[in-house]
């Protein structure tokens, strides 16, 4: 039993140390490192859908990480790196889409739905408050007496 456990532990050690030995990147300062981490998390891998380039092992993601690193080391700021990538891979490559005539609906639609709901609510309220006084005005005391008399007579 102990031997088996030892073997298992040995295997676990093997597997944990071998795969994806990430390259160690050198940065001039912490701001650059933060920017690199932020950008690789925000840039989307064009090859594997729904992965950012920090997560992906696709060749193109590796190349984009390398390019991002290179551009940051050259002193490029966040927007310059984003522009560089968007220029080559389109708006698709950034997880924050720009506002244009196609994406405007993403922001506009929830707002319109909310306004629609409020409009419906207000409309129904108005209808209800209109109906109530009418009913009371229509059913005069005499009519009510009649109704009460009818129900009594049924007994």
């Amino acid at each position: 039993m102990k031997a088996l456990l030892a073997v298992l532990l040995l295997c676990a050690g093997l597997f944990s140390s071998v795969p994806w030995a990430e390259e160690v990147l050198q940065f001039d300062n912490d701001a650059q490192r933060d920017l690199y981490q932020q950008l690789t998390a925000e840039l989307r891998c064009p090859q594997c859908q729904n992965q950012n380039i920090a997560d992906s092992h696709a060749v193109v993601a590796v190349d984009m990480r390398e390019k991002t690193y290179q551009l940051i080391r050259e002193g490029k700021d966040r927007q310059q790196v984003l522009d560089y990538m968007i220029n080559r891979y389109g708006d698709f490559v950034h997880y924050l889409p720009p506002v244009n005539r196609y994406t405007l609906w993403l922001w506009l639609l929830p707002l319109l739905m909310l306004l629609g709901l409020i409009a419906v609510g207000v409309f129904r309220r108005a209808q209800q408050s209109k109906q109530v006084p009418q009913d009371i005005a229509g059913n005069t005391a005499a009519e009510l007496d009649q109704l009460i008399a009818r129900y009594r007579s049924k007994k």
Partner: peptide, 12 residues
Amino acid sequence: TRSVSLDLGVSG
């Protein structure tokens, strides 16, 4: 180095 491919927007 796939740099031209990157400039062309090649994803694979």
